[in-house]
């Protein structure tokens, strides 16, 4: 059986909120290392990969592999009943029909309990190879969100060019063009404001801004976002969570002119 207790419901609320517009029905794969999710959007352009390590829960118990097929719209409805600060416990039997969610308020003696019916989801699983990326950029997640939103006002696509001069986000649209260039930057007092560019070779790739703006819904999960690029492979956008847990998005590039 599964029993996983989160100190704050907020974490799961934010994760589900960040991915629910991209993917609808997902298997939450539970085993003794934690709870993982991998799902592609309908157009097979973007992929979500979430890992909530067992260390992110206290306690965490999962005796055998359990796949919880959950509709994220249903999960969102139930999670809306949880206060951000509530303790959240997920429970399921070994061959479950439902997943049980319990929300406990630390301040009052209120305990809420919900069951969500599970679905049989036959999901295609993609193997994501370990990749040595040509460029890795760490930057404030709010900055990345702002750049994507600003450029989306002009164009559907953004080119991300990384060279030793810095990283340039550029777009061209009907009304004109725009670009934002960032250079490496260290803020000793506020490390969350750092921009770090790790480059082994120059990279230039084009991506759909619609998807990037969608990924940025995860910005509240982490002060920093990591972008990993290599020529002609999908972009990795990673929001690191506590205890080595993470929320990752992969986005296939636009190719050719």
């Amino acid at each position: 059986m599964l029993e996983a207790r989160l100190e704050q419901a907020n974490l799961l609320k934010k994760v589900v909120d960040a991915i629910k517009d991209l993917v609808q029905d997902c298997n939450f794969d539970c085993n003794d290392s934690g709870i993982a999710l991998q799902a592609m959007d309908n157009s097979h352009v973007a992929l979500v990969s979430m890992m909530l390590k067992s260390e992110s829960f206290s306690p965490f118990r999962c005796d055998r592999n359990i796949a919880l097929g959950i509709n994220l719209t249903s999960l969102t409805k139930v999670l809306r009943a949880a206060q951000n600060e509530d303790i959240l416990t997920l429970k399921a039997e070994d061959a479950p029909d439902v997943v049980n969610l319990v929300f406990e308020s630390a301040e009052s003696d209120r305990i809420s309990e919900y069951d969500i019916k599970l679905m049989d989801i036959d999901q295609e699983h993609l193997g994501i190879p370990e990749t040595e990326y040509a460029a890795t950029i760490s930057m404030p997640s709010a900055e990345f969100q702002r750049i994507c939103r600003d450029l989306m006002a002009l164009s559907e696509s953004v080119s991300i060019e990384c060279s030793k001069e810095g990283v340039k986000f550029a777009c061209q649209g009907d009304i004109g063009s725009g670009s934002v260039t960032l250079r490496s930057h260290t803020n000793v007092d506020k490390p969350e404001m750092n921009v770090e560019i790790d480059l082994t070779e120059p990279v230039s790739l084009t991506f759909s801004l619609k998807y990037l703006v969608g990924f940025c819904k995860a910005s509240s999960l982490s002060g920093q976002v990591k972008l990993c690029l290599s020529n002609e492979v999908p972009l990795l956008v990673e929001y690191a969570l506590a205890n080595n847990s993470y929320l990752r998005f992969y986005l296939a590039p636009k190719i050719g002119d």
Partner: peptide
């Protein structure tokens, strides 16, 4: 204009 590629072009189903 550039064409949108799909993930299967890069990642194999397992």
């Amino acid at each position: 204009t550039a064409q949108q590629s799909r993930l299967e072009g890069f990642f194999r189903p397992v």
